[in-house]
Simulated scan of single mutants.
Amino acid sequence: MVGTVTARPTAEPAAARLAAVALLAGRKLGGALLVIWGVVTFTFLVVRVVAPDPIGLLVPPGAGTEVRDAVRTELGLDGSIVSQYGIYLGHLARGDLGTSFGTNQPVSDDLLDRFPATLELAVPALIIGVALGTGLGIVAALRRGRLADHAIRVVTVAALAMPPFWLGLMLLSLFFVSLGILPGPIGRLPAGVDPPPTMTGSYVLDALLAGDTQTAGLAAAQLVLPVAVLACGIFAPITRVARSGMVEALRSDYVRTATAYGFPHRRVLTAHALRNALLPVITMIANGVAFAFTGAVLVEGVFGWPGIGQYALVAVQQSDFPALQGFVLYAAVVYVVLYALVDLAYAAADPRTRS
């Protein structure tokens, strides 16, 4: 009697899935590297064509041709643009972003030194902006057509219409110049106050960990106005998108069906309407993160905040090519990483996108 042969599961489907995932990851990584390379190349060419010659800013006005040529050679600006570009890519491949003309320090070290200041400013602004924008958008959708909805829409449009640097100047004029209740644009701490011992990079947290509540209070006071300006730029677009998404979700057939089946109103809102309404908000949150970490150049400049944004602003003013290229590379990496995380967040929130 011939026995029945049972087919054993093969590893081919698992191997095929693994190969497909690896191929997809490779494509995304290749696309990300291509975007970064394009941004780096465009920035390299533009700063050398549009920006003023940095030699005129680095040498005395009466310096002779020999001095100017010597400085140009020292900075690596004596060759053709093609040769400079090749040298720059070679250094970049080794992780060398160049040396800043202004600080005479490696650009990577400058960015790392200034990142804690940007982080201390960005994190509370993001928390406030995302929470306020999402909450106001949901409230406006639930009160659609009522007084609360109209008031929130007016505030949102006003926030969108105000440039961040202008809002910062107006807040300084009101709370620092006129009322005198908040500190001026003097950085992370008042003049003459020593920073706390570095543990986290945040002056507020480091001072609290060191038991210095007075310095922590001074550092927190310096954060109030710039955080308010950044949060204003973050919450307004999130509010509009959250309201639109929630209104559309509340009108959908699946919400009507869940309501008709007698599900509790709270469960219908949270399990059905809110989850689908927040999908477009994910993209706006990513935009807010990018704005807080890379786009707040003028905000940091207005408040004298010694972060990466002010570093980029000074680099533009001084035609500091390596510093400006380093900032743009940093911004490009931030955007690429953020939108990769957005893809993952969409896949987690909406199973339909996983295919």
Rank of each mutant, 00 (worst) to 15 (best):
G3N: 06
T4F: 13
T4Q: 09
T6W: 11
T6M: 13
R8P: 06
A11F: 01
P13Y: 03
V21T: 15
L23I: 08
L24C: 11
K28D: 13
L29T: 12
L29I: 13
G30C: 08
L33Y: 12
L34G: 10
G38A: 02
G38E: 07
V39D: 06
V39E: 11
T43A: 10
T43E: 00
L45I: 00
V46A: 07
R48Y: 13
P52Q: 04
I55D: 15
P60W: 06
P60L: 10
P60I: 08
A63N: 09
G64P: 03
T65C: 10
E66W: 05
E66V: 03
V67R: 14
T73N: 06
I81F: 14
I81C: 08
Y85I: 08
L89F: 02
G90M: 06
R94A: 04
G98A: 12
G102A: 08
Q105D: 10
Q105L: 14
S108K: 14
F115L: 15
F115H: 01
E120D: 01
A122H: 13
V123G: 06
P124Y: 15
A125V: 10
A125G: 07
I128S: 08
V130M: 02
V130I: 12
L132N: 03
G133Y: 12
R143K: 15
R146I: 01
D149T: 07
D149A: 11
A151L: 14
A151D: 11
I152P: 01
R153Q: 05
W166Q: 09
L167G: 00
M170Q: 14
L171A: 12
S173G: 12
S173Q: 13
L182I: 07
I186T: 15
R188C: 07
L189R: 03
G192T: 03
P196Y: 11
T198L: 14
M199D: 02
G201D: 04
Y203C: 02
L208Q: 13
D212Y: 13
T213I: 02
T213A: 01
L218S: 10
A219N: 10
A221R: 13
Q222P: 04
Q222I: 10
Q222H: 15
Q222F: 07
V224L: 09
P226L: 00
P226F: 00
P226H: 00
V227W: 08
A228K: 12
A242H: 09
M246G: 02
V247R: 09
E248R: 03
T257M: 11
P264C: 14
V268K: 10
L269T: 12
L269E: 13
T270S: 12
R275N: 04
N276H: 12
A277D: 02
L279P: 02
P280C: 07
T283I: 09
M284S: 05
V289L: 06
V297H: 01
V297R: 00
V299F: 08
F303M: 11
G307E: 00
I308D: 01
V316N: 04
S319H: 01
S319I: 00
S319W: 01
F321Y: 05
P322A: 06
L324M: 00
G326T: 14
L329T: 02
A331Y: 03
A331H: 05
A332T: 03
V333L: 04
Y335T: 01
V342Q: 14
V342T: 10
L344G: 03
A348P: 05
D350G: 09
